[in-house]
Design a protein around this nucleic acid. Structure first.
Length: 214
DNA sequence: CACCAGGTTGACC
DNA sequence: GGTCAACATGGT
């Protein structure tokens, strides 16, 4: 059954990598900033930008919303797409400043997700990352690595289909969702390069399983 | 020098 | 529903 597959993958990754703690940030709003900045960019660049924003005392909705957009551009330049990211960060900051971050984050999970999706620059993955890692609510994050790994194993689907698969196969548990996504990213970064794909323990293990079962 | 990175959007079938 | 170029810097 595919329901077991999801927890089997988790156990395999956990055994290979060990427990992980995510998301590295001092405050929920810092998580939000990180979700935008990390789009299509390495985390080391995000760290530099966050540090720069901290130096300018801008890791707060009101302050970021009131800053000059040109200043934000310079501070986040190292993350790429810096002009649109600066504007989107400022928009989101303005939204949280107006509505109150605590008010927004205490909404029901699905409503929160919908509202996050309505912000420019926030798509499925970013919305779910905010819901899970900033608001601490159970939503499983699907990213390019997850999609790639599942396709390797032989399971294809769009974002919502894969998310449903994972959520159906797991207890609704925030720390578990957080760690599972972190494990997938770590695994994929270290073991799913083009060269490594041939020795991908995960893929081999589950392909064999499939043969045995079927 | 070419290619990719924890992605989103708007335009177009 | 799906596909595609644009968005841009930094590291291998």
């Amino acid at each position: 059954m595919q329901n077991e597959l999801v927890s089997d993958i988790y156990e395999t990754l956990l055994g290979k990598i060990g427990h992980l703690q995510w998301w590295p940030a001092d405050t929920p709003f810092e998580v939000v900033i990180g979700t935008i900045l990390t789009q299509q960019t390495k985390w080391t660049n995000v760290e530099k930008a966050i540090e720069a924003l901290k130096m300018s005392d801008l890791i707060e909705p009101e302050k970021l919303a009131d800053a000059d957009v040109e200043q934000i551009e310079e501070l986040v330049r190292c993350c790429g797409f810096y002009r649109q990211k600066a504007r989107r960060l400022q928009d989101i900051a303005g939204f949280f400043a107006t509505e109150g971050m605590d008010n927004i984050f205490s909404l029901p999970t699905d409503e929160l997700r919908k509202i996050m999706l309505s912000l420019k620059g926030v798509g499925n993955e970013t919305a779910d990352s905010i819901v899970l890692y900033a608001a601490d609510k159970p939503k499983f994050v699907i990213d390019a690595y997850t999609t790639r790994i599942m396709k390797c194993i032989g399971i294809e689907g769009n974002y919502m289909q894969l998310q449903s698969l994972f959520e159906a196969g797991l207890p609704s548990d925030v720390p578990l969702y957080k760690e599972y996504h972190a494990l997938i990213v770590e695994y994929a970064k270290n073991y799913c390069g083009k060269k490594q794909c041939e020795d991908c323990a995960l893929v081999h293990r589950f392909r064999e399983k499939e043969v045995n079962n079927g």
